[in-house]
Simulated assay, not measured.
Amino acid sequence: MTRHTTPPGPPGAAHEAGDRGLRVVVTGATGNIGTGLLGLLREDDRVGSVLAIARRPPGTPPERAGDGDGPAGATARDDKVTWLRADVCQADLVHHFEGADAVVHLAWLFHPSHRPSVTWRTNVLGSTRVFHAAAAAGVAALVHASSVAAYSPGPKEHGVDESWPTHGWPASAYCREKAYVERVLDTFAQDHPAMRVVRLRPGIVFRRESAAQQRRIFAGPLLSRRMVRPSRYPAMPDVPGLRFQTLHTDDTADAFRRAVLTPVRGPFNLAADPPVDAKMLARVFGTRTLRVPARPVLAAVAAAWRLHLVPTPDGLLEAVLRMPLMDTTRARTELGWQPRHSAEETVEEFAAGLRGGAGGPTPALADRLPGGGRARELATGVGERT
């Protein structure tokens, strides 16, 4: 990997931190985007040190890998990254943020989807704690991981820019939480004009190593590797509105790195071309398309979710059918960001990861849960784990 010696963007864009290099804090560092970002920060000469915060850092004992409780503290360290086991809802974040040049906030819960009060606590109240702790610690830059899911319903024929309303889709807890945090940041940025506040709004982020985690989050234990092999499906459902954007984890991580190092503010859309639709999915999975109405598909997902057969409620699928396509001009011009992977390449890589049961190096990305894999997923409640 190339080591960077000048900032991406205007000369002198990076915050001057002396010989020590920038000190960056990353919350939610064990997830899909977090692990990709840590790799880039490790290789960047302008970054001197990284504090990686997670509820389950690498090396967490298996008996603790399913929870975020217990004593917090540094658990591992390499030449640039120090790991801290901590929950953003409980930890003394001001203490951990002191001396940092930038905080990148990635920590987010998808589950338990049947208990939205739990996800709200981490995603909204935890995020608010992160923002205010960064201000109290005197951090110069805050980079927050928002999402296309924060956007209100919009067009599928062309992209919208960052001024599109961010009220989410009310039937989805995930969208409501992403939209609410956008409102929190509106007020926060006004109250802290000296802090550089950046919001990145990526499409759906995939890579091979995220396959096992995202299968657990979105599809559950009943989706087998055999089911995603080419030609296993008689047809790919072509539901009205099924047109969305995706991008590779490496490209997403690069945008976050640039947001840390470039003197930009405000929101940025992130996506790769072309948009994903039923025809592309049919090519990837070696089948044909079949046009079906949305209502029975949503009803089937809703029934499966209520029966704890799938972890994702129908509201999130409905949001995908309604969310707009995004225009990424601002990220390309102001961040100097350009995705290296096309959307179809990304989907093909992710599909290969599903077929192979691929996972990553952290507890969050592991190819199977400790103590039983898919059987443990069923035993602990589909859509109930945190």
Rank of each mutant, 00 (worst) to 15 (best):
V276T: 14
V94R: 14
G159D: 05
G73E: 10
T166M: 14
V310L: 14
D250G: 09
T346N: 07
D69Y: 02
G73Q: 14
Y174L: 10
H111P: 00
R265L: 01
V118K: 01
A255E: 01
P267E: 04
G371D: 12
W305N: 03
T27A: 00
H192L: 13
P58T: 12
R332G: 12
Q245W: 08
P8Q: 06
V292L: 15
T328A: 11
P324T: 13
T5H: 13
A137S: 04
F188S: 02
R376H: 14
K156I: 12
P170G: 07
P61S: 12
S152Q: 09
V297Y: 08
T262I: 04
P116R: 09
D101Y: 10
A278Q: 12
S163N: 09
L317E: 14
G73A: 08
S146R: 00
A379L: 06
T386I: 12
L37F: 03
W169H: 15
M195G: 07
V124A: 01
R368W: 03
T262K: 00
P8N: 09
V160W: 02
P311N: 10
T30Q: 03
L109K: 00
E157T: 15
S147H: 08
A76M: 09
R225K: 00
H95C: 04
A379S: 06
H111S: 07
E162C: 02
T287V: 06
P57G: 05
T346F: 12
V205A: 06
A52I: 08
A271I: 11
P153A: 09
L222Y: 13
P193C: 13
V264G: 02
R295A: 15
C175V: 10
T75E: 06
E318P: 01
G286S: 05
V260R: 04
D44L: 12
T328Q: 04
D161T: 11
K279H: 15
V260Y: 05
D101S: 10
L51K: 01
G266P: 01
P370G: 05
R216C: 11
L222W: 07
P61G: 10
V103W: 07
K178L: 13
A54S: 15
V301K: 07
G371T: 07
D238S: 10
R176E: 13
G168D: 11
T287G: 07
D78G: 06
S224Y: 03
A278M: 13
L109Y: 09
E348R: 15
S152M: 04
V292M: 13
P234C: 00
R376L: 15
H158Q: 11
K80D: 03
